[in-house]
Amino acid sequence: MPPVHPLDRPEREAEMSHSNRRNRELRAAALLVAPFVFVFAVFFLYPTYKVVALSFTDAPLIGEGTWVGLENYAKLLGDRLFYTSLWNNFYFVLLTVIPTTVIALMIALSVSKLKGRMQALVLTLFFLPYVLPVSVVTMIWAWMLDFQFGILQPLIAAVTGKAVPVFKNPHWVMPMIAVVTVWWTNGFNVLLLIAGLRNIPEDLYEAAALDGATPWQRFWRVTWPLLWPIISLVLTLQLILQLKLFDQVYLLSNGGPFNQSYVVLMQMYREAFQLNHGGYASAIAMVLFLVIVIVSVLQFQLLRIGGRK
């Protein structure tokens, strides 16, 4: 080190150590985020870029295609099956998102009344289906709803007068897939809502009780407004999840009967992996992506406005 004037030494040193510390912090930060950035880039950014690029070509599944501009998108806009699929997607959203949230809220409210061990046990029971892989879930329900041997057929017969092959009936197929989906994914929503409920301090309910609130008023004037952020989160997560419907349809009805359960991802899958139209499938994926972004942003904004009122 060169000799320094004794008076400006402390300052210089402070400055040095300051910039040293910054450098060290930056290095550590870079090191810590590097693995994530790497994985993100390789497995998300690059494939995303590829899909966008592919959607402007006539590429098959493997190998390069030639640039065709917006031709895939133009074709998609005239594809009747695409509109059927999109409609089915929205129909499914209608059948699942709000019902599952309402059911989850009711379950969460009753579970939160339970104490200690009992609460944990019941919560586990509701959460269990969520842990199962989709193939197991669909297998269970395919069995239970089997036209000849399904244990739920007597129930259906009791209501409608005869047994119904639900996954082969155009009216039954979407609602039944919705039932299976709600059964499968509900536990997670219950968990989120329970966490939200636990965050509401008990003394607010005591204060409300002293103020003369009935249980009904306590729910609408305390629980509901304070839980609203979680409810809107659940609604939004559900919307995104249910728009991406594929597995259950593929395994239970394969899009049939008469395309009544055909959904957008189903069509993308068929174009890509059965018809070898990589470019066209990418265009479908892009459009679905846009739809999800637009719808969920729209919904989130709507919910925020609703919450503020």
Binding site: P201, D203, L204, E206, A207, A208, L210, R221, P225, L226
Partner: peptide, 12 residues
């Protein structure tokens, strides 16, 4: 009427 230690005001 009770005044709580935590105040128990309705935050919303």
């Amino acid at each position: 009427a009770m005044v709580f230690q935590s105040y128990a005001l309705y935050p919303h």
